[in-house]
Amino acid sequence: MTSDASMKQSKWLVDDATNEHIPKILALFHAVFGQDMSEAQWDWKYGGGRGAGVVVRKDDEIVAYFGGMERRILFNGIPVTAFQSGDSMVAREHRGTLSKRGPFFLSVAAFQDRYLGYGRPYLISYGFPNERAMRLAERLGMYTQIGALFEIYWPAEASVNFRSVPFDFDDGGHRNALETLWHSMAEEFDRRAIGVRDLIYLAHRYRDHPVHSYIIHLVFDSGDRVLGIVVARKAKHRLVLVDFVGRRQEFRNLVCYAKSLADKERCSEMFGWMTDIDCNLISGTGEKPKELPLRLPFGVYREGLDPEELRDRWFFMCGDSDFW
């Protein structure tokens, strides 16, 4: 289906992305980012109705793509399906067209017009654009900032205060522990917006990822009390702290465990994300936040939820994106 946003343009056509577009979208991804996305990774993100996107064409050439994935969240304690903006790309030779007639604007506008806002499939959206894309989208009236998150670094540090076991998705005791941990976490964030972290989510997001291998540990203190679940991934000399499931009062302990895991994995440091309003939950762990935070957007091109209802309400870590 061709979007109405394209009807006013003589140069570009905007269509819903379909299976026939996939090879050209993957080729555009390689040209823009200098790396490949396999068909398996595409299917992990978009297959089975998990995602949607639009393409901007010049004749048969795809010059831009904007799309993303569904994410089950809790908003004020109520289950909602949100949309994570995951992939935005424009062919290099067309990036100079940064006006409301250009392919970047058309891809985002057409997507929001079709999928986001009142009377459309998704009322809530989020994403993690780089600063250049964020500034451009703000200038074009597509996004407004509703929060920020910090990139944080920690030194690796050994500890004897914890023990852990790999999380076994088939073990009944582990599954029950996850259910209890997530239930407690959800209750503590019941006036916030937070992505669901249940068994179905962890299995698809981490266990079944077609490219990355994740360390998923059930963590205990020295007295065998369950502290939470830590998800991490090695990236060269660094351990990426990807995700937590647990109560807020245990976040410092989970960070300290992850630092000890970085030491065991022979990483020199650990890296992670934390929304700025939650950084107090991990203070005193040797954290070193990057000076300038990443800004969090909310789509405002079409009438929908008031941005103030989501301002400083999200809880995000690295795993809430699709690229860590």
Rank of each mutant, 00 (worst) to 15 (best):
D171M: 09
S99Y: 07
D15Y: 10
L28R: 03
R175G: 05
S268V: 15
F128L: 05
L149T: 07
I152Y: 06
R92A: 15
R139I: 00
F105T: 04
R311S: 13
L178K: 03
P289W: 11
R139P: 03
E138Y: 00
A82V: 10
S125Q: 14
E250W: 09
L28P: 05
R132N: 11
D113W: 02
F220I: 03
W314R: 09
R71A: 13
A148H: 09
P121S: 09
Y115V: 02
N280H: 15
D320M: 07
R197L: 12
A82T: 09
V90H: 00
H174L: 00
R132G: 05
L123W: 03
K24P: 02
R71G: 08
D243S: 11
M89A: 07
G141N: 09
E20T: 13
T275G: 13
V14W: 00
R266F: 07
N76L: 03
L28W: 02
A177V: 04
V90S: 03
K45Q: 14
R192C: 13
S213P: 00
M89W: 08
N280M: 06
H204E: 13
G195V: 13
D312N: 15
H209Y: 09
H237L: 12
L26Q: 01
F29G: 07
Y46N: 10
I194W: 04
R311Y: 10
G127N: 08
A110H: 01
A177Y: 01
L199W: 08
V245K: 10
Q112L: 05
M317A: 12
D171P: 12
A31W: 00
S164N: 11
A232Q: 01
G141S: 07
E303V: 08
K8N: 08
R302I: 09
V63C: 08
